[in-house]
């Protein structure tokens, strides 16, 4: 199968939405960041010049615009840039988009996608490295989508764009240039269906977004040591596929959760709680988490490295759950 980058696959997903729905438009420029992969978006700007708007640096207003337009019958894909800028949009996302369907008694639909770039990207510092997906997980009414590879990006963008519900979508900066096999044809990937990225029998390793790639690297190291890791990628946090997760834990009896959100109340905390509550009987060892410590993100490389969940840290956590009887 042909190999293309995450960014090219993502743009194919957007193009599919453009072709499929005349009322689909893009608000917010540089969906694939300001690096060399931004060029792939040009195809969208040139093919659909009336359906792409470049807003001023007014995150609160243009995200509200996206939400309000969605309430008025449009489908809007709204790009916010670095995830920390989405805090300026928090009122439009959490107060408006997330609550409108519910508070209107089900009369209003909000088909909007808020897309942002997250994660430790090397040198991003405090305000360009944020991974706020757990914060959004605490806002009922939002679907949360985290593609981890090119193939998933294309199908998840398509599903998010077509969805009738507000969706927050995260792209990790380090995924943008990553190549992978992607079918030429159009396809949608259903939300709430985890993907087992590597089958294994000894330990369940749950990760999303870029952490899936890092976890697969860790699994390679561990395979050489005779530890067979199963890497489970939930792909969407809301809806969350408990079934696949619990089935995997039932098989392996051991769980490590790796994620770039902060340790406290982060993605690893919720996934651990689900397993502790609903699959405790299968566990042969305590659950271990590899997460970003509860500190703002430093700039200097050794400091940033220290807080980054790496393949070595993940491999070490897996070894520890293997040692515990």
């Amino acid at each position: 199968m042909r190999k293309i980058t995450y960014s090219q696959a993502f743009v194919e997903g957007l193009d599919y939405c453009m072709r499929k729905m005349r009322n689909f438009s893009l608000v917010g420029n540089e969906v694939m960041g300001l690096g060399p992969h931004r060029v792939h978006l040009e195809r969208i700007w040139k093919t659909y010049p009336d359906r792409v708007r470049f807003p001023p640096t007014s995150e609160a207003a243009f995200s509200a615009l996206a939400a309000g337009a969605a309430m008025s019958g449009e489908h809007v894909f709204c790009h916010l840039g670095a995830a920390s800028f989405s805090f300026l949009s928090m009122t439009s996302i959490a107060n408006e988009a997330a609550t409108a369907h519910y508070a209107s008694g089900g009369k209003i639909k909000v088909p909007v996608v808020f897309h942002m770039l997250h994660g430790l990207r090397i040198g991003g510092g405090t305000q360009h490295s944020v991974s706020p997906q757990a914060m959004y997980w605490n806002v009922p009414g939002l679907q949360i989508v985290l593609p981890s590879c090119a193939r998933d990006a294309k199908g998840l963008v398509a599903t998010a764009g077509l969805s009738e519900n507000p969706t927050v979508m995260f792209t990790h900066d380090l995924l943008i240039g990553l190549e992978g096999e992607v079918p030429e044809k159009d396809y949608e990937i259903p939300f709430g269906k985890a993907d087992i990225k590597r089958r294994g029998k000894d330990v369940t390793l749950v990760a999303t977004s870029w952490m899936v790639q890092v976890s697969l690297e860790a699994a390679k190291i561990l395979a050489d040591e005779g530890i067979d890791v199963e890497v489970v990628d939930p792909r969407t946090l809301v809806p969350f596929d408990k079934k696949t997760l619990i089935a995997s834990v039932a098989k392996t009896g051991r769980l490590v959760v790796a994620d770039e959100t902060h340790l406290s109340c982060g993605v690893t905390a919720e996934i651990s709680a689900i397993v502790a509550e609903e699959a405790f009987q299968y566990l042969k060892a305590p659950i271990l988490r590899v997460a970003r410590p509860d500190v703002p993100t430093p700039f200097s490389r050794p400091l940033e490295d220290f807080i980054t969940p790496t393949k070595e840290k993940i491999a070490d956590a897996v070894r520890r759950v293997m040692r515990k009887p």
């Binding site: 509200a64 969605a70 309430m71 008025s72 019958g73």
Partner: peptide, 9 residues
Amino acid sequence: GLALGGAYA
């Protein structure tokens, strides 16, 4: 902000 979206639509 929401009315702005209505106007966009």
